[in-house]
Design a protein around this nucleic acid. Structure first.
Length: 297
DNA sequence: GGCCAGGTTCGCT
DNA sequence: AGCGAACATGGC
């Protein structure tokens, strides 16, 4: 099955997918302009291959696997949300140009959109895995986790793993994750959360329809989830527009670099500097993060 | 060899 | 309330 997702607003497929090649290697395979990942559908694993439409402003999505008749529209919605195709960056750019430093940052990244995780659960688990670790080790742990617990599906002669369901993770023992070199606490956080979701005590996927405040009130009391994690879930899971994870070490380094500061700014300083970026602080954060990757200056 | 990584919790003043 | 240690390991 082939889907087309229309692109109405300035959208650079190249810039948007760039970071998937380097920071989402556990989830996406890249081959000749096509990004492929697995996604759990209603009837089982799906393989999704996304590329830029050669002729018109659209994303081209090839879906392989068994789908429900009524699933197409749902899947299409899900992919539109994941690839932020409905996000118009024009007002963000207009506002950022007021500030010469941010103006320069956005000018070099025109059309770069955020790619969200396909579910809140996946985003939450990934974010917890990434806490406090350098990105490369976090990616290693994530890959091991997906391979340990996720369903396997064959694609082009290789075996791919699907991001595990809460039920699959709920069946693991803490020691299983410790063996993958998770620390004990992190193993507990992830498995305990998965058990809550599997038991129906925690509904993450309803959060798309909730207010930021409601989401925070549900997530923050969970063991292993602090402010930074909530902010990341809102940003990369829910696609909320105005999050500023000011305590984030990466963001602080990026602000230091862009504003040419002598030392790493403290959290409060980042909040102060970021005040004028509202109501687009999520994209401001995302663009700043992007300045840290070596391939873009 | 030591310190820092896209933090958070726990235990101690 | 606030502060430091512990956490697992890779990279510089």
């Amino acid at each position: 099955m082939i889907l087309e997702l229309e692109l109405k607003y300035p959208y650079s497929f190249e810039k948007t997918t760039h970071r998937l090649r380097f920071f989402e290697k556990s989830s996406y395979i890249y081959r000749e302009g096509v990004f492929t990942r697995t996604l759990m559908g209603k009837r089982g694993p799906l393989i999704i291959s996304i590329s830029r439409h050669p002729a018109k402003p659209a994303l081209c999505v090839k879906v392989e696997g068994e789908t429900d008749p009524g699933e197409v529209e749902h899947l299409s919605e899900r992919l539109r949300r994941m690839f932020s195709t409905e996000v118009d960056l024009t007002p963000f750019y207009r506002q950022m140009r007021e500030d010469s430093r941010m103006g320069e940052v956005v000018r070099q990244r025109e059309g770069m959109h955020i790619v969200l995780d396909p579910s809140v659960y996946e985003c939450l688990v990934k974010t917890i895995i990434g806490q406090q670790l350098n990105i490369s080790f976090a990616a290693t742990l994530l890959k091991r986790f997906i391979q340990l617990a996720g369903e396997k599906v064959e694609f082009a002669g290789e075996i791919l793993s699907v991001f595990p369901s809460p039920e699959q993770v709920a069946r693991l023992a803490y020691e299983d994750l410790q063996q993958l070199q998770f620390n004990r606490r992190k193993a507990e956080y992830i498995i305990d959360i998965s058990r809550q979701v599997a038991d129906g005590k925690l509904d993450l996927e309803c959060m798309y329809d909730q207010s930021d405040q409601e989401v925070a009130e549900t997530l923050l009391p969970i063991r292993g989830v602090g402010r930074w994690t909530v902010e990341c879930v809102m940003l990369f899971g829910l696609g909320r527009p105005d999050l500023l994870p000011a305590a984030d070490i990466g963001l602080r380094n990026a602000v230091r670099k862009v504003y040419d500061l002598a030392e790493q700014p403290i959290e409060d300083k980042v909040r102060e500097l970021g005040e004028p970026w509202s109501p687009f602080r999520s994209y401001a954060t995302f663009y700043l993060w992007d300045t840290l990757s070596a391939t873009s200056s």
